[in-house]
Write a protein that binds this DNA or RNA. Structure first.
Length: 480
RNA sequence: CGGGGUGUGGCGCAGCCUGGUAGCGCGCAGCGAUCGGGACGCUGAGGUCCACGGUUCGAGUCCGUGCACCCCGACCA
């Protein structure tokens, strides 16, 4: 009994999160402050996230490209708001090859500027539009305080950058990509998200509009899980991206950018995890099924391993990501806990009794204890498990949605907002406040304006803070 | 950048107050036993005690300086 139980999430969510990330082999601490090593299991999870997104990007007409890690310092300065927003957190290279550089290079915190510089060269005609690119890359932001995956000095993400002929097209693109993010989060990540628009206070440095998907974590705090920006003509003007329209007139482009990082991986952990560790949605899980063989002696071991291997091959050939845990000297109970910590959606147990009966035991991670266990026939097992995985995916989304809805409260006034924030959860109410009002609320409650949800009620109401007439509702919550 | 904490085998820690050149648990290796919810036994490998300077016959321990990392806040994907 020397193993150490996880800190229960209800006791100290932050501590629980750190323990899960490290103990479930997602990541390791690195010698570099605020930077993590992503271990194979965590990286495979990220690869599945990438695959789900990349497929959607391609389906909406985008192509991948790759731009340099280093950006000339002067590029950042071309868009005033942009440089102001990012300069506090830049890493700057001043020496290369032992020589002081004439112009320092910025290690990209985001790539708008260097990509817009290329767009300047690439776009001449309306026939060149729209230009729809995406880049998978690492970026660096020198953050004060870091947390694995949620905020690291260096992180992996994708950043889409597009240029369009009109505001309407750029706006449509911005909203389309937000839909893509939401579709991915909901259907692959089983994370219910609220789509909305950021307040001016919270929008991206240099953007006209920033749209966001906001998710509720297991501690009822909000996680901004992906953002999509309509950059208007701000960057097009700063980088002189002009095209000749059908009437042979020069026009500035309208550009967008949209990004989603490995933070979403932290979101998966914090949305679904429980006191036994990770719970991974089947669509993202590196292993969807793990097979634990059970035997008492060499005779049993022979036949059990043989059967388990056969089943494993059958499942793999049906496209199920399966792993057979053949490790010896480890008891089944140990393996159950081991794989539960790592969030594998389904555990299949194969023992002598199962072989007698032609069955297996299937235990689902989303339903704890005996309730989640059932016997399945070895006949047609792949189809049965595929159906079970679908059911788990659906159930996890349902559980997360119920939790989110149960902690999303409508508030009429500031007192109610404070109460909601204090007990944990999202506070939703009419809002007509100023940036100063937002700052005031943040100062007093540490809750921030998360978004104006797209889903708006009819009519108008009194602002929860100022009492002034408001035509929009907003959501406030403590956020990561 | 403000506040707090910690640096001792791979990990978690004790030892420091009351100086006498290292110990526990886990993990790891070998053998055996066990295996339907984290069982076990025996044997073994593994440490310039964060760095530098000082006090001392002698420093993990006392003093000074520095560095690093973690946690809590303000800033952010």
């Amino acid at each position: 009994m020397a193993w150490q139980a996880l800190t229960p999430p209800g006791e100290d969510f932050s501590k629980w999160y750190n323990e899960v990330v490290y103990r479930a082999d997602l990541a390791d601490q690195s010698p570099v402050r605020g930077s993590i090593i992503v271990k194979p299991y965590g990286y495979e999870l990220w690869e599945n996230i990438k695959a789900g997104l990349d497929r959607r990007f391609k389906a909406t007409g985008h192509q991948n490209a790759y731009f340099p890690l280093f950006i000339p310092e002067s590029f950042l300065k071309r868009e005033a708001e942009h440089v102001e927003g990012f300069s506090p957190e830049l890493a700057v290279v001043t020496i290369g090859g032992g020589k002081v550089l004439e112009e320092p290079y910025i290690v990209r915190p985001t790539s708008e500027t260097i990509i817009m510089d290329a767009f300047h060269n690439w776009i001449q005609s309306y026939r060149d539009l729209p230009l729809l690119l995406n880049q998978w890359a690492n970026v660096v932001r020198w953050e004060m305080r870091t947390r694995p995956f949620l905020r690291t000095l260096e992180f992996l993400w994708q950043e889409g950058h597009t240029a369009h002929a009109t505001f309407e097209e750029a706006e449509a693109e911005t909203l389309q990509m937000l839909d893509v993010y939401a579709d991915f989060a909901v259907n692959d990540g089983a994370i219910p998200v609220i789509k909305g628009r950021k307040s001016d206070q919270e929008r991206f440095a240099g953007a006209l509009h920033t749209y966001t998907i906001e998710a509720m974590m297991g501690d009822k705090r909000a996680l901004q899980s992906g953002t999509s920006h309509n950059l208007g003509q701000n960057f097009a003007k700063a980088f002189d991206i002009q095209y000749l329209d059908r009437n042979n007139e020069r026009q500035y482009c309208w550009t967008t950018s949209w990004g989603l990082s490995w933070r979403i991986l932290g979101g998966v952990v914090m949305t679904h995890g429980d006191d036994k560790g990770l719970r991974l949605p089947p669509k993202l899980a590196p292993y969807q099924v793990v097979i634990v063989p059970i035997f008492k002696n060499d005779d049993e071991q022979g036949v059990v391993i043989e059967t388990a291997t056969r089943i494993s091959r059958e499942l793999a050939s049906s496209g199920i990501r399966v792993h057979l845990d053949k490790r010896e000297d480890l008891s089944p109970g140990f393996k159950y806990n081991y794989w539960e910590l790592r969030g594998v959606p389904v555990r299949v147990e194969v023992g002598p009794k199962d072989i007698e009966k032609g069955s297996v035991v299937a235990a689902r991670r989303d339903i704890p204890g005996r309730d989640g266990k059932q016997f399945l026939s070895q006949e047609n097992l792949a189809a049965q498990l595929s159906a079970l995985l679908d059911e788990i995916q659906t159930n996890m989304l349902r559980q997360a949605t119920e939790f989110r809805d149960a902690n999303l409260h409508d508030v009429k006034n500031y007192d109610e907002l404070k109460q909601v924030v204090q007990q944990g959860g999202f506070a939703r109410g009419w809002w007509a406040g100023s940036p100063d009002d937002e700052a005031h609320i943040k100062g007093e409650t540490s809750a921030t304006h998360r978004c104006f949800p797209f889903d708006q009620p009819d009519g108008t109401g009194a602002c929860l803070f100022t009492g002034k007439p408001a035509d929009k509702i907003a959501i406030f919550a403590k956020a990561y």
